[in-house]
Structure formats: C-alpha cells, structure tokens
Amino acid sequence: MKQPISIETQQHALMIAKSTQKEGQTKEQTKLIASGIEKGIAEYKKQQKAKARQSDKARKQQAKHKQHAQHDEPELELEFDDSNQITPVVWGLICLLALSWLCFAWYIWG
C-alpha cells in the first residue's frame, strides 16, 4: 500500500523547487520538479526508517545474545576421579617428601 506524502514534505519540496526555479520556467514545470523532489524525500525517509529498523533489530539481537552468554556461562566445576589410584607422579612426590624429612632428621640428630 502506497503511503501518502505528508503535507510538510510537499511544502518542503515546493519550497526547494521554487528556490531552484529557472527563468522562463512555468508553474507546471515547477510542480513537476516539486513532485520529483517529494518522491525523493519520501524514498529517503523510507530508507532511513529501514536502516533504523535494521540497526534496532541488530542491537536487540546483540543484547539478547549477550544476555544468553551471561546466563550460559559455565560455573567452575572441578572433576575428580573417583578411583582411588595413586599415579606414579604422586608416588614420586611422596618419596621426595619422605626423603627430605629423613635428610632433615639426619641433619638435626647427626
């Protein structure tokens, strides 16, 4: 559906057409120029509205994405192995600790 051009836009277009009117130009020619300017202004406004809608949609989508990202942030969860196995690295550390205590005891009493 074609939207009617506002009276304000028509007046603005007519004012522009009159300000650029050439010598010997008839009223009909000026009105034709004014109608072309009206269409240009209407098209410009339509494009600006579309850009505004698009940017608003992108802004809302970005806010929604940011909100989901904050909600979906995983909490720190430490996973422990339920099996009671002592790995070779742990055995090595236990041996080093025991050896250091034995050396310390030998130093103190020796």
Rank of each mutant, 00 (worst) to 15 (best):
Q3R: 04
I86S: 04
L78F: 09
A52N: 01
Y107L: 13
D81E: 02
S100E: 05
I7P: 08
T87N: 09
P4S: 14
G40M: 07
A63C: 02
E38K: 02
G36T: 03
H68L: 08
S100K: 05
Q3V: 11
K57G: 14
L97G: 15
Q25T: 00
D81L: 01
P88Q: 00
Q54A: 12
Q10T: 13
W109L: 00
E28F: 07
G24Q: 03
K45L: 09
I94G: 03
I86F: 06
L78P: 04
A42V: 04
Q61T: 12
A105T: 05
L14C: 03
H65Y: 12
Q67D: 12
I16F: 09
T9G: 07
K45N: 07
Q25H: 00
K27Q: 12
L99Y: 04
A13N: 05
A98V: 06
W91K: 07
L78C: 09
W106R: 07
G110M: 00
E75L: 12
Q3G: 14
A69E: 03
D56E: 14
I108W: 03
G110T: 00
P88N: 01
A63E: 06
I86W: 08
K51G: 10
G36W: 04
W101F: 15
L76Q: 09
Q85C: 11
S83M: 01
E23P: 13
C103N: 09
Q11C: 13
Q47I: 10
A13W: 01
A50I: 07
K49L: 15
K31F: 13
D82G: 11
K46C: 04
A13V: 06
E75R: 13
Q3M: 04
K64G: 12
